[in-house]
Design a protein around this nucleic acid. Sequence first.
RNA 1: GCCGGAGUGGCGGAACUGGCAUACGCGAUCGACUCAAAAUCGAUUGCCCUUGCGGGCUUGGGGGUUCGAAUCCCCCCUCCGGCACCA
Length: 829
Amino acid sequence: MSGYEPKEIERKWQRVWAEEKTWEVANPGQPGYDAEKPKSYVLEMLPYPSGEPHVGHLKCYAVGDAIAHFRRRHGFEVIHPMGYDSFGLPAENNAIKTGEPPRVATERSIESFQRQFREWGISIDWSRELATHTPEYYRWTQWIFLQLFEKGLAYRTEAPVQWCPKDATVLANEQVVDGRCERCGTEVIQRKLEQWFFRTTEYADRLLADFESLESWPEHVITMQRNWIGRSEGAEVVFRCEEVDLDFPVFTTRPDTLFGATFFVLAPEHPELERLVAGTPAEEEVREYVNRVGRESASERGAEDREKTGVPLGRSVVNPVNGEEIPMFVADYVLMEYGTGAIMAVPGHDSRDYEFAQKFGLPVQRVIEGSDPEVARDDEGLPYPGDGGMVGSGRFDGKNNREAYEEIVAWLESEGRGKPAVNYRLRDWLVSRQRYWGAPIPVVYCEECGIVPVPDEQLPVELPEIEDYAPQGKSPLAAAEEWVATECPRCGAAARRETDTMDTFVDSSWYFLRYLDAQNGKAPWDREAADFWMPVDQYIGGVEHAILHLMYARFFTKALADLGHLGVQEPFANLFTQGMITRDGAKMSKSKGNTVSPGDYVERYGADTARTYVCFMGPPERGGDWTDEGVEGVNRFLSRLWRLCEEAEQKTDPVRPSGPGEGEARALVAKAHWAIDKATRDFQRGFQFNTVISAVMELVNDAYRVKDGLYGTPEGGAAVRFATATAASLIFPFAPHLGSEVYERLAGGRVWEQPWPEADPALLVSDTVTLVVQVNGKLRDRIEAPAEAPKDELLRLARESEKVAKHLDGQEIVKEIVVPGKLVNLVVR
RNA sequence: GCCGGAGUGGCGGAACUGGCAUACGCGAUCGACUCAAAAUCGAUUGCCCUUGCGGGCUUGGGGGUUCGAAUCCCCCCUCCGGCACCA
């Protein structure tokens, strides 16, 4: 008998799947399409091809593949495609360093991913493969851009934007983390530039509302997106500055505290600042302050325990609710990007305003009573952010602030000094990048016609080959003079191409649609195909994309649906986020030298071991620490299954048992059914693969324990064979090669063509149960009892136990609790 | 600061609606096989007391509800993730 040789087995089945194109599925109307089967779209986030795949990839695709196999065997027509998110900064930065064109490095990496996906045995429909950097793909990225442009959802404007000095490009708001560039960690600075935006804010409400329509998304991902969108309801209230004849609207969530507004603050970037102070004594100081703030980085300005700073303007505005004149300030704690860039300051009920008031000696006024009566009317306990009765608020005094809220807003509205308003934290998505390795933005600038979209029939606007990838503050594409110079599609005059490229998140915001019709040369996808396959039934990926990618893709889907190209509002009905694998408790990184190369493990133990291990480490949604010993443990388990197979093949008849038999044989068959039941339930219950696999381990262990006594007896041998084939069938989603091989040898046929096994309910229950007997809630004995025994029978058995009697000794039983089939608890005093 | 998630053996983790805590795996110890080692197979393995039988304790800490709590409620501690001057 030979040992477990994964290489041989894995090569064999990979060849079968490749030659027979096992995992390819047809669209409606195409040959091979089966209208009887319900569809299921199982999708893992596409990889960014940089170097070799790492264990994070292995886990993501092992998890997704297990789900795909499970669905197939439940009768679904499963579409399970693969592609590469192949535009992006790392390839370009590498090019700057080494001179190697991004295309070359990227395509080499793609080859490595392709090879490894095959070696891992992932069940991919290769006929739908795509890479976002190919003109065949980005032609349609450009087409979508133009569709959005026509609808007014893509626009160009000058705005203060986040600029990374190292990568020499603007960044989306979402790509700035703690004031630093998400990619390289350099502190970003603000610059005022003309850039392209997508109007994501227009969809803010729908992005929020449609969480309701999702089937199953992790709660924390929804929460993160909700916080990111940051919807606040409140009111816009207008404060007037008579001296300069200007109205200053503010956004507030607390119109109920209007009577407590004692000063007024503008953001340093506020456009009217100049006009307010021009020619006044405050002019110089204000200008100095604004300049100083302007030089500071976002992280400096947002620092945690930063002291409040600001400068008085020497002007005042009128509080519309009481006619009071309150002084104006400029201060950097007010942000131009949020609300109107101006606030009414209520130091009595807002901690930031309170701090500012303390520093500048401004009055603090309580207008809402605190909950603590001791300090309710005092200045003690301020600032007080909570609710209570109103004081010092004219005719609203005595009312609860919540109730007065609506009244105040209504009153302001009738006076023309305010209205209900909603504000969002979310900004429009800045999509232009001053970089080379991305899809060119398909517009042309003409002296006469202005911004002119490139006509559809001229797409793609191909990315030209260049030599120098280093950014010079503008896109490297600007140096490709021959490419830049073009003619206006509208008037034919000399014109210049847009030299910015699109953020790579644009590419990945619609790739799941291209898979559905990947070879289509006439359209990005066929509407009928999209209607059939969408939405993605199960999406799998890392939590790191909880906000960016997932929100952009949702936005795209809604915009494309509005444009009539799609029939769904949400792209991903179910989302599963897998946890990160660490090594020695730390995130893997090349600099720490604690990376794990999946290739090495596949080489040494086989793909089945590596895949099963990442699914066994712990619940897949949680992280886990990679250990070589753990890998060996899984390899040992698969080897045991293999040996069981080889032995059973020799020693048993291929005939299936006529019945479950009796004794050990029956127990083993029952165990197999228990494993089927447990594996199936845990699979469905949030993809608890670790316990699915442990159930199969238990089955294999049991078979191992009893096999020698069973060989030779007709029912016994059949039971071993059945248990082993069942284990193979259940482990197949994780270890597809070994699962296929063992199943073929012992049961005949291809395991992936077999329906997922069903547990026989009759074999899940046994005649006897272990009755747990407690005295005062403490375990005192275990007794084998008939499963169907009535309560008094169980009580009798419990009382008869010697061990129990010892603890009852002379005491009065005051209560008897009997849970049939489970336990008896005797309460004594 | 605010919002999530999590604390269970030496380690990763299991325990479906409150009912045998520690499944499965790793590690460790002992034994079989072997000239020997590896591999494999078998046994033991939460902690404390006890030669043994047996007993006591144990799910981050404290309190509560209950015949019975890892699980439910209240308070506290620690770790991880997200957001953070968002008016």
